[in-house]
Amino acid sequence: MFVFTWLNDQLLKMMWLNELVGKVLTWIGIDIESRLGSSVQFFAYDVIKIFILLSVLIYSISYIQSYFPPERTRSILGRFHGVTARIVAALLGTVTPFCSCSSIPLFIGFTNAGVPIGVTFSFLISSPLVDLASVFLLASIFNWNVALAYVFVGLVLAVAGGTLISWLKMEKYVEPFVYENPMVQLEAQDMTRKDRMDFAKEQVSFIIRKVWLFVIIGVGIGAAIHNYIPEAWITAVLGVDKWYSVPLATLVGVPMYADIFGTLPIAAALVEKGVGLGTVLAFMMAVTTLSLPSIILLRNAVKPRLLALFVVYCTFGIMLIGFLFNILMG
């Protein structure tokens, strides 16, 4: 247990980095006991930590993901039926490389090949929500209990969502062109070990380029909350005792297009200031699962009724998870 705690503190939480940053700042003459000094230390430590974690995590996770291209996921899904298929879809969603710009071709590719839409939606919910890298970051910033609980409720949300869509027989609310003339089903291209390493390297640089600004803004806001905003102000609006904190956090998060890597530092600072964990998780889930750009994109392939069901279901599901966490952890 001691070894695990040590590994967790030094590798995931990187306590050594915090000390190192403190020493460097003191050396260049910044008083880290002062408010500004401690903000600078927090900011530098958090930014460096997130970028190190991101690079290492994305590299290793992308290497694993290179074994699960969507073409393969599609053929695996064809072997399962009913709720099993939706569970498998939600699980594969966590390991299939996903980019919001590919969600529409992926939706069309799955549906046209005969994957039931309930199964496809389970995949589409879990894929951005339960991203492996974000699980490790949650463990680093909070702890493993929170990270595992997050994975569990995320998967439940994905499976239940797919099940609901399948029960309500929403197939007719998919744009007809998606079903028209069977499309070519390309097989996944064979990859050598070098290809996988190249893919992993490419993913690291792609994701870092995509999220670096969000991370810096997120850590900046987190540091400001941490050091300058009085706890009383925050708990007055978002405190655990305020029932509306969860719906508020969810509704603010839904249209936002940001990355979980940028929202985590804000989330951590809010929890420290007495905001309920459920409220914070609801915000993060809302930000990652839904965003205005992705909703607009999805409209290309599904009709308004199915789109509305998807958005309303996710919003209420996330709120429910938020309430549950606040009750259980409160």
Binding site: E71, S102, I104, P105, L106, G109, M183, V184, N300
Partner: peptide, 11 residues
């Protein structure tokens, strides 16, 4: 998207 999908690619 329709045209892209017609080529069978998902990524």
């Amino acid at each position: 998207f329709k045209e892209i999908a017609n080529y069978g690619i998902m990524r």
